[in-house]
């Protein structure tokens, strides 16, 4: 039996990145086997997503796909048709996690921080008021070598106390100074 599978590329691939539409039709998405990480960093200029290991171990490249945390080094863009991708650049500026990380001293060298913030965002979406143990488990895929994690726990718990999601708490979260 002969497969119907086409040898040529299929229909146009498109998805949104931080609210912007990308499409293979206009060349803003390369080969389907391209890593989402490379698309972000090399083609879309979104360098807030970092490469720490290239094997899904460190979480520095973590982004949200349809609100779920993924390691962008292990996602081929060909699988993203119709998805919403959010990298650190697309997180609302009033997300209480951003100011909580600054207040708590949760960022030291900062290379793990964008991925850590997004892991924390995904955690708070699953569990608005997590326990310390839930925080420890929820962030366990994001390695940090500077902080020993303590200040990150504080930041996440503070953000949870400040409001479950961006823009929902009374008065809004204090923004980060630019």
């Amino acid at each position: 039996m002969r497969a119907q599978a086409p040898a040529a590329p299929g229909p146009a691939l498109s998805f949104t990145l931080n609210g912007r539409n990308l499409s293979s039709a206009d060349g803003s998405i390369g080969a389907p086997t391209m890593r989402l990480l490379d698309l972000l960093r090399l083609h879309a200029g979104q360098t807030g997503t970092k490469e720490g290991c290239g094997e899904g171990e460190c979480g520095a490249c973590a982004v949200l796909v349809d609100g779920e945390l993924v390691n962008s080094c292990l996602v081929p863009v060909g699988q993203l048709h119709g998805c919403n991708v959010t990298s650190i650049e697309g997180l609302p500026r009033d997300d209480p996690l951003l100011s909580a990380f600054a207040r708590a001293g949760a960022a030291q060298c900062g290379i793990c921080t964008p991925g850590m913030v997004l892991a924390a965002r995904a955690l708070l979406e699953r569990s608005a008021q997590p326990s310390l143990d839930e925080v420890r488990e929820g962030l366990a895929g994001n390695l940090c070598r500077c902080t020993g994690y303590a200040r990150i726990y504080t930041a996440v718990l503070d953000a949870a106390a400040a409001g479950a999601s961006p823009g929902t708490q009374a008065g809004g979260a204090p923004g980060l100074p630019e």
Binding site: A3, A5, A7, P9, P32, G78
Partner: peptide
């Protein structure tokens, strides 16, 4: 007889099995 596509994303299991049968 033909080389496999670089990327094939079938929409049905039947198409997936057909591709598997060929390549």
């Amino acid at each position: 007889s033909r080389p496999p596509p670089a990327w094939y994303r079938p929409g049905t299991l039947a198409d997936a099995l057909a591709a598997r049968a060929e390549w």
